[in-house]
Write a protein that binds this DNA or RNA. Sequence first.
DNA 1: TTGTAAATGCAACAAAGTTGCGTTTATTGT
DNA 2: ACAATAAACGCAACTTTGTTGCATTTACAA
Lengths: 140, 140
Amino acid sequence: MSIDFRNIAGELIQHHGGRVTAGRIGILAILLAEQHAITHREIEQRLPESLPLDRVTLYRALEWLAEKNLIHKVTSDDRVWRYHVNRELHAHHHAHFKCTRCAQVICLDDLPAERSWPLPAGYRFQEIELTVKGLCADCC
Amino acid sequence: MSIDFRNIAGELIQHHGGRVTAGRIGILAILLAEQHAITHREIEQRLPESLPLDRVTLYRALEWLAEKNLIHKVTSDDRVWRYHVNRELHAHHHAHFKCTRCAQVICLDDLPAERSWPLPAGYRFQEIELTVKGLCADCC
DNA sequence: TTGTAAATGCAACAAAGTTGCGTTTATTGT
DNA sequence: ACAATAAACGCAACTTTGTTGCATTTACAA
């Protein structure tokens, strides 16, 4: 884990008025270093042995980070949340891709997921959740 | 529960080479009578007291019905599968709408969810999962 | 340095869904 | 109508993900 990501993580956390704890730094640094959306468990595995985090703490830290819009949660059909850092492009809603073989999830930033869709009368549009499924480059 | 739906359910099950059991009839009849995609729990609640089904049996029956393409599963962000009967229009992939207030899910048949989307090089498109979120007519 | 709220860790819980296995039952053939 | 049999079923136990309550620790600021 690059020390850079840890520094950036620390600054981001502090800037959002949260306590800069080892757990939050470690989690956010992992997500900053990762280009895919990863699960709670994958985060746990990437944590250094020197920083064993309780499952609950991890969930709560992720919840806090999502609240502060530093990361976002991605739904999936396997009932497992995946988390991804909010880079500039991710501020708005966007689509995700999930590989049907290796279950890897990436963000598709160039897919505008913001326009409204035709709904039955009386329904009000808020947002869409779009997951494109297929095979990733590794599994093709 | 209309006797009609039970008859139709029975015929559908038989036609697909499955045993016509009380459980399967009850479940499929409920789904035939329902226009929304509902959860396993909602199905359980709608079952008559005279037909108490084990949770496992319910899951296995739903699995079988989905295998035979009589129903389809709908993913949701609350980690709970919802089930919906496959009418003619539902044979192909289509989008879903979920109310952010009452969590009700309906199918949007007129939203073509079949065209392929631009993916990174080396990725292969298979299908998309599209959920439009907002407020339903009741919650508006 | 110390007070305090925020963050953490532990234990216990909840809900969705799955697996193994013995029992029941819908169907098929006689 | 009846017996054989594979398909369904029901029960118990388990897994996984995620949540809640509460006591303890710790980052931070006064």
